[in-house]
């Protein structure tokens, strides 16, 4: 018998691997260069030597808030904004979407349309339209940056809607709630003990998207002249660029790390085999 057959498939696979590594390497160089540029810039001193001064300063939160009060104020404002936006988004969307599925399926197109509408409204346009509304917000509340959360909820509406919709699609809300009600649960219990626990992953990813968008938002805050993290970084960038760039890089790396970690946690849906899905969805008319 002849030796091992070096087959067509092996050749094909080798070619595919080479192609993949070539493309990925080029992509990583392109994606990596500006990030490296930031790192290089923040570890440079006036005479061009390497120094970790900027980063050690960044690690020392006490001095930061003393020396760069605007930056820490912006950070605090952005964190508040993230929390408020997530809470408002969930309070507005989860009950509405669940209720529409359970009792008012006729409204589902309307809700979907409204939630996806902001996709066609660029942030800059939203600023134009929100100007009179925010005049009232300032009059009724005050001019604090945290009230930007009203605009941010609109901004994240499409993304949060999609994440939650995917979660609701994966479970049979109607059967679950009917089962719970038949066992004697009230609507409150149904929401808190049955629907929400099953939506955990969807709620988590909607919240993550919201936080990411909120922390990165610049347009609205800048044009309404309110200081959030991005605006503070922008303003500081004009006087002390290094610390500003360092904060930006740190935030970016943090976001990548979080998303990377989350990719190992989620994704139980993939374990549903394609076969069982096929059986469920294709009814034979015979």
């Amino acid at each position: 018998m002849a030796g091992p057959v070096s087959g067509q498939r092996a050749v094909m696979r080798r070619r595919q691997n080479a192609f993949r590594w070539a493309v990925v390497t080029v992509a990583l160089l392109f994606f990596g260069a500006p990030l490296f540029g930031m790192l290089e810039f923040t570890t440079r001193d006036a005479s061009g030597h390497r120094t970790a001064a900027t980063w050690s300063q960044l690690a020392d939160l006490g001095t930061i808030s003393q020396r760069y009060p605007d930056l820490s104020a912006g950070l605090v404002a952005s964190l508040w904004l993230a929390v408020l936006t997530v809470v408002m988004m969930l309070v507005l969307l989860v009950p509405t979407m669940t209720w529409v599925r359970l009792r008012l399926p006729g409204l589902s197109r309307t809700v979907e349309f409204l939630c996806l509408l902001p996709l066609t409204v660029p942030a800059i346009v939203l600023v134009v339209g929100l100007t009179p509304v925010y005049a009232w917000v300032t009059y009724l509340l005050n001019g604090s940056a945290v009230w930007l959360c009203f605009a941010y909820v609109v901004l994240v509406l499409p993304y949060a809607y999609r994440a939650l919709d995917a979660g609701l699609r994966a479970i049979d809300v109607r059967t679950l709630s009917e089962a719970a009600r038949s066992l004697g649960a009230g609507w409150g219990t149904v929401m808190a003990r049955v629907i929400l626990p099953n939506l955990r992953t969807a709620v988590l990813s909607a919240a993550f998207l919201t936080v990411a968008l909120t922390l990165g938002e610049f347009t609205i805050a800048n044009l309404f002249s309110r200081t959030n993290l991005q605006v503070a970084m922008y303003l500081l960038g004009k006087s002390d660029a290094q610390i500003s760039v360092a904060v930006g890089l740190a935030a970016l790396l943090f976001a990548i790390a979080i998303l990377f970690a989350m990719s190992f946690v989620g994704g139980q849906r993939d374990t549903v085999s394609p076969l069982s899905r096929l059986r469920r969805h294709r009814q034979e008319p015979t």
Binding site: P34, E40, M233, G248, L252, I256, L259, M262
Partner: peptide, 28 residues
């Protein structure tokens, strides 16, 4: 994950990143 973040990565940080790379004193 990288692309998920970079796709939303606009604005100030992005501008900084390119200035630090291709700007007058950028490393490239």
């Amino acid at each position: 994950s990288l692309c998920g973040v970079l796709a939303q990565f606009g604005g100030v940080t992005l501008a900084f990143a390119f200035l630090a790379t291709f700007g007058a004193t950028g490393f490239l």
